[in-house]
């Protein structure tokens, strides 16, 4: 990790209908990190993301990309959108083209690349998202999960430095969710920073290496996942439940089954690793 690639400094935004969506958001996204922005519906997650892509312009405050303040002239925006890719929540409002191949080609074409280079990038992006076999299929016969993959491919094909996903697992079944998060992991490993919005505390806890909690248009907590989710006071203020791994860990520590100085487990395997062996614990019925 190095310096912040994206920064919001005291950003305020009010929608034309008077909704105050952001009220002084200050946030730093370190380059190469996996950030989860948590918060209930209406907390301002999507609004914040639209600022990072230059779609929305703050009423006051500034947004910075790679240390430079975002400028809103046509050329600067074009450059920003090449580097900061955004995947929207509803795939049907992102996929405008009936052909998957052409859909993915839209971004690269806008970069002014030659048709051969565009085709190469489309194939590469489809391969990276395990969507190669969808290339010839019409968009309207894809399943919801497949549409999501094509959306990600459409953004990846532009070669962004930061990938922003709004509620990537909403509407997906558990297996598709796991697959998509694994995909985002691979992208994060290879090309850098991934930012997601989610309401799923378990997902945020196990996947992210940095968590931002938004509530009513303000950042109420920011830090690494264990810091955030062990802070009961913060969770209560933000109406969030503790991830089940953390809840079970707490309970085990409370009952003296796990030593209080044991490292906080990040996932199921680490949690199971903390459990005492059969002989040390309460006698089991089958003995």
């Amino acid at each position: 990790m190095s310096g912040p690639i994206l920064e919001a400094l005291d950003v305020h935004y009010t929608y034309p209908d008077g909704t105050r969506a952001l009220r002084g958001v200050t946030l730093r996204v370190p380059e190469g990190s996996k950030v989860a922005v948590l918060g209930p519906n209406g907390a301002g997650k999507t609004t914040l993301f639209l600022h990072f892509n230059g779609i929305l312009r703050p009423r006051s405050g500034t947004v910075r990309f790679a240390g430079r303040e975002i400028r809103y002239d046509r050329r600067s925006l074009g450059e920003l959108r090449r580097q900061v890719g955004m995947v929207f929540q509803d795939p049907d409002s992102q996929l405008f083209c009936a052909s998957v191949f052409e859909e993915v080609s839209f971004g690269p074409v806008n970069l002014g690349l030659t048709p051969e280079e565009v085709r190469r990038r489309v194939r590469e992006a489809l391969r990276a998202t395990d969507a190669e076999d969808l290339a010839d299929r019409p968009t309207h016969y894809l399943s919801y999960g497949q549409k999501k993959r094509v959306c990600v491919a459409g953004v990846l094909a532009m070669g962004p430095r930061v990938l922003i996903c709004d509620e990537p697992t909403a509407g997906l079944d558990p297996r598709q969710s796991a697959g998509l998060m694994e995909l985002l992991d691979r992208i994060a490993c290879r090309s850098g920073t991934v930012l997601i919005a989610t309401q799923d505390v378990d997902l945020a806890y196990s996947w992210a290496d940095r968590v931002v909690v938004l509530k009513d248009g303000q950042v109420v907590g920011e830090g690494n996942p264990t810091e955030i989710f062990l802070d009961e006071d913060l969770l209560r203020r933000a109406d969030l439940a503790a991830p089940w791994v953390v809840a079970v860990y707490r309970e085990l520590v409370g009952r003296g089954l796990v030593r209080p100085d044991a490292p906080v487990p990040r996932n199921r395997e680490q949690l199971f690793g903390l459990l005492p062996a059969a002989g040390a614990a309460a006698p089991r019925s089958e003995v």
Binding site: I55, S93, F96, E103, F106, A135, D136
Partner: peptide, 22 residues
């Protein structure tokens, strides 16, 4: 409206040019 936003995010500036498979 949503579509317009999503297209803008991928650099839409007024024309929907795409490239098909060869």
């Amino acid at each position: 409206l949503m579509l317009f936003t999503a297209l803008s995010a991928r650099g839409y500036t007024g024309s929907l040019d795409v490239v098909g498979p060869a």
